[in-house]
Amino acid sequence: MVNLIIDGKNVTAQKDTMVLEAARSAGVNIPTLCAHEAISRSGSCRLCVVEVKKGNRTRIVTSCLYPVEEGLIVDTRSERVQNVRRLVLELLLARCPKSEVLQKLAADLGVDPHPRFVPDTDKGKCILCRSCVRVCEEVVGVSAIGMSSRGSHKTVGPPFKEASSVCIGCGACVYVCPTGHIVMQSTGDKRKIWRRTFKMQACEKCGKYFAPVDQLKFISKKTGTPYKELAVCTECR
């Protein structure tokens, strides 16, 4: 066990936990976007910054990637932290002015769009955190999507900007995306995502369309469960 101080509170945390988790367990809320329990950490949104003090050195770190240390003093809302966080949010907001999540965060933290940053119009709601790419690789295991290009041209999506042949239409990327960039439309027996249209499986018992056929085939192949058994929705199982 490691003892540290977060916002003046004495906190005990397990070795190897991150400052973010230690703070949360102590009831201290730190805003985050890209830290998601389903995937490995990337530290890409920079919203979770805090100030840590070791000896007489203080510095700004991302709490989602900073492991707890004995005697560490953490300040999650010092002026310095708030300035950095404000700047991060202003930049994110300038990139994705249409993201409701960012708008709400900005409102909560009292941040206004900064006139110095001209809003982008072509980035959608994507903050390039790579969470969707990670979940597709780490959890689903198909790596259907990735980044392309770099700098201001960087975008996320299937390779060659075409429908991916390995995508199973599971929607895990939609689930982890913190800003709601990825569009998935499920209507009747069809689901559209990432330029592809998937056929949906109707539950053999209740008749409700509940998952793409390709996803069930994938699970069947992976787990060896006969497809027939999977063709029943979770509620009827």
Binding site: S143, A144, I145, G146, S148, R150, P159, F160, S164, V166
Partner: peptide, 25 residues
């Protein structure tokens, strides 16, 4: 060529999406 990237990805055991990331970077 697109076919070369797909073939290389398969032969190297890397997802096409990852090869495409490097190729466009």
């Amino acid at each position: 060529p697109k076919d070369a990237l797909a073939t290389a990805a398969k032969a190297l055991g890397i997802p096409v999406s990852r090869v495409y990331e490097v190729a466009t970077f």
